[in-house]
Each structure stands twice: as C-alpha cells, then as structure tokens.
Design a protein around this nucleic acid. Structure first.
Length: 409
DNA sequence: GAATCCCGCCACATG
DNA sequence: CATGTGGCGGGATTC
C-alpha cells in the first residue's frame, strides 16, 4: 500500500492486465513459495494450482529453472528443489561447456557497436565462420536409443525437439554472457547469434519470443537485468550473476517502486485476455469446507521448533522483514463484503501474491493491510511439506483463486 | 509503430 | 489410449 507507486493508476478498475500474469511474476512467486532449504520436492500440479496458473506456464519456468540448476527433474510431474545454491555449479559447467564448444567466441562481432569495449584490447578473434554454432545437445551426449545409424545428423525427432527446447535455449543464452566479457546483449542479437546468421524472419521472431520468456524469469531472479543501451536506447540485457540473485529471491523487494524489474510485477491472477468477463460475478463460492486448517496450524508449530539452522553458507535469512514483529494478521476485513473470509487461506494467499497489493482488483481477499510476510516462513514450510498431501486444500485455494475466471460454464 | 510476450492449440512423448 | 510435456506463433498489450 504505502509502497505502491506510479506506474499504475492504482485502481485501473479491473481490466485485463497482462502484467499481472507475466512469467516473471509467476517465477517470482514460484520462488517465494519454494525457495527454502527444507523444500525438496515440487509437484507441478500442486505448483500450478497454488500459483494460480495453468500447468503449461509452470513448464515454462520449470524448464528454465532446471537449466540453471535450481531444479532437477525427478520424475514425471515432479522436480526436486536445488535452490540458488545449485546455480554456481550449473553456471560453471555451462561456462566450461561453452568455452569448450568454442561457440561463443566469434559471434560477438555482431555486438560490437561503437563504444562498449573501451577496455582491454584483447579479444578473441577467431573467425572461422561456423554458421550454426548451435551445437546440438550439450549435457549428456548419450542419446542412446536411436535404433539405427543415427550418425551425426540423426536429428531423431526427439533430438530435434531438444534442440529447440526452452531449457537449452536458456543455457545457450546464459553461455553468451558467461563465456565472454560482453555485458550487454539484446534479445535480437542473442537470437541472431544463437541461430545461424541468415535465418528467416519468422524463425527469428519465434526465437526472440522465447528469449523474452527466458529473460523474464532470469530477470525475476536477478540474474540478468534489462536496461537500455546507453546510446542506442535499445533495450538489452546485462548479466548480473549471482551477486544479487540469492538475496533478491529471498527478500521482498521493497523497491518495487521503480518501473518494474522487467520480469517482475504484480500478481498473476486470472482474467482471460479476451473473454470480456462481463460485469461482476459473485464468485467466491461458499466453499463450505474448513479444510482442517488446524492440521496446518500444527505443522507450523512443528516446523517452527526445528526451524532449520543448517543454513551453512548464507547468513542471510528472511532479510528485511522480521517475521514476528507483527501481530497476527489474520482478521481481514473483507473489503467488498462478498469476500468471505477463509481463515488461514488468507495467509496462504499472501504467499502467492505477496507484496503487490497495489492491484486489489483481483483477489480482494488480501487487499487489506496485513503484513504478507509475517507468515511467510511458516506457511512455506507447510506448503513445501505437505506439497501433495493437501490435495484438498489445494482445491480450495484453486477455487478461491480462480473463481473469477474459470469457466463458469 | 515497435517492443513485449500471454495464451492455449495441438504435436509429441510417456506412462 | 490417456496423460504429461512443451513447441510455436497469433495477436493483444505495453511502451
């Protein structure tokens, strides 16, 4: 509330807002939800419902997060959480791999624009054009299974698919930064570099689209940052690396005042793009359930007690917001009136859509004040722990969250 | 007008 | 064959 600021007529009434549903925001919320040491497994279904998005979107972020080492696929529909601590390793490998492949080397000719490199005169300059630097697979060279001669150009359908995957693209994009000293790259350039040179416009367009997706999640993690080129005015991305990433993800961005950290923004909530949801619809079904919130309550206690202290590396914890400085937020005064309080769900809601109170249009549930972070740690514990056990409450949450959009049909 | 990038159809992969 | 994945690009939003 207090921190709301420009850039949004505060109550643009409730029109569809693309920003509220950006991948970056989703990623931010995803991290808020799972970025804890005691989280181990993450179920995609659960994540999707908790975050209030379609499964498809989860795949998007999960794929890039995995390629960065934050997640690791465990099984179908299931990922293990590695956390930010998994990034260094991943980056290191990407760097080595990238250098080894040597693909990053020459292409920077495209990037050199007048100034930029004021420093060192060194440089690589091997220019043996190698068009498709796009080296096929990267990680495990084991494709094992192409029945017959897969030779070099096997392109066994699946490989082809892998080649175009968001994950691999993410890695290559990252290599671009990590394997060179270039610090500013526009997505257009990146696409050009990662693809061959003479690519058809449509191919480029698609690639750039994907890069936007990737950039959004990387931005939300503060691994990169969007800025405008000094002269060109053209938008480009700068590599930030881990210096901010970790902290950024853990803390609450109080400085959300700025414009918008590119891939970061308001809560994602539903409101279909086209469907001109006519006026009001008294949603908020009367979920008559009280899903055992005490169960949760207990869980909290438990976790509270053995709050992990094995945070070896980081001395940093919940950052700025001190968990218990606040009185029980609980009681919310339903602003509208039609909102029915749902005890703990209100708190839960904050986890998914913290900080951005500026857009009360949706989920009026927490439009009120209550400090969203007061509960954060605890609830997260719960969530991660009962990831799949709460199938029930999950449904509830879903109901509350989507009641708006979901096909009333 | 250009830059962004959400949305969800639908082809593949897997179980 | 059902369900899980996730390319892809039309076109709505933002800038």
């Amino acid at each position: 509330m207090a921190l709301v600021e420009v850039n949004e007529p505060v109550s643009k009434s409730q029109t569809y807002s693309r920003k509220q549903k950006s991948l970056g925001l989703l990623c931010t919320n995803f991290l808020k939800l799972y970025n804890r040491e005691d989280v181990h497994l993450i179920g995609l279904d659960n994540a999707a419902s908790l975050l209030g998005v379609e499964r498809r979107r989860i795949y998007d972020i999960v794929n890039v997060l995995e390629s960065i080492g934050v997640l690791a696929r465990k099984a179908k529909n299931q990922y293990s959480w590695k956390g930010f601590k998994g990034i260094p390793r991943a980056l290191k490998e990407l760097k080595e791999e990238g250098l080894r492949e040597g693909f990053i080397a020459h292409q920077y000719h495209a990037i050199r624009d007048a100034k930029v490199s004021d420093d060192d005169g060194d440089d690589y300059d091997d220019d043996d054009d190698e068009r498709g630097l796009n080296p096929n697979s990267s990680s495990q060279p084991d494709r094992s299974n192409s029945s017959s001669a897969s030779k070099t150009l096997g392109a066994s359908k699946s490989d082809n698919r892998r080649e175009k995957s968001l994950g691999l693209l993410t890695q290559n994009f990252v290599k671009l930064f990590v394997c060179s000293n270039v610090e500013l790259i526009s997505l257009e350039e990146a696409a050009r570099i990662l693809l061959g040179d003479g690519q058809h416009a449509s191919i480029m367009r698609t690639k750039v689209r994907r890069l936007y997706d990737i950039a959004n999640v990387l931005s939300s993690m503060h691994l990169i940052e969007k800025i405008h080129h000094p002269e060109t005015r053209k938008p480009a991305f700068r590599w930030l690396g881990l210096k901010f990433a970790d902290v950024a993800a853990t803390s609450v961005d109080f400085n959300e005042s700025k414009k918008r950290v590119f891939g970061t923004e308001i809560t994602n909530t539903s409101y279909k793009r086209n469907k001109v949801e006519p006026v009001e619809k008294n949603m908020y079904p009367k979920l008559n359930m009280h899903v055992k919130d005490e169960t949760l309550e207990n869980e909290v206690q438990m976790n509270m007690l053995d709050q992990d202290m094995n945070q070896s590396s980081k001395s940093y914890r919940f950052g700025p917001f001190a968990p218990n400085s606040m009185p029980k937020p609980k009681a919310i005064a339903p602003e509208g009136s039609r909102i029915r309080k749902v005890h703990d769900f209100e708190s839960l809601a904050d986890i998914y859509c913290p900080q951005y109170q500026n857009q009360e249009n949706v989920l009026s549930i927490h439009s009120v004040s209550l400090n969203p972070f007061t509960h954060y740690p605890l609830l997260s514990d719960i969530l991660s722990e009962v990831d799949m056990l709460v199938g029930l409450s999950r449904e509830v949450l879903r109901t509350i969250y989507f009641s708006k959009s979901t096909t009333i049909a």
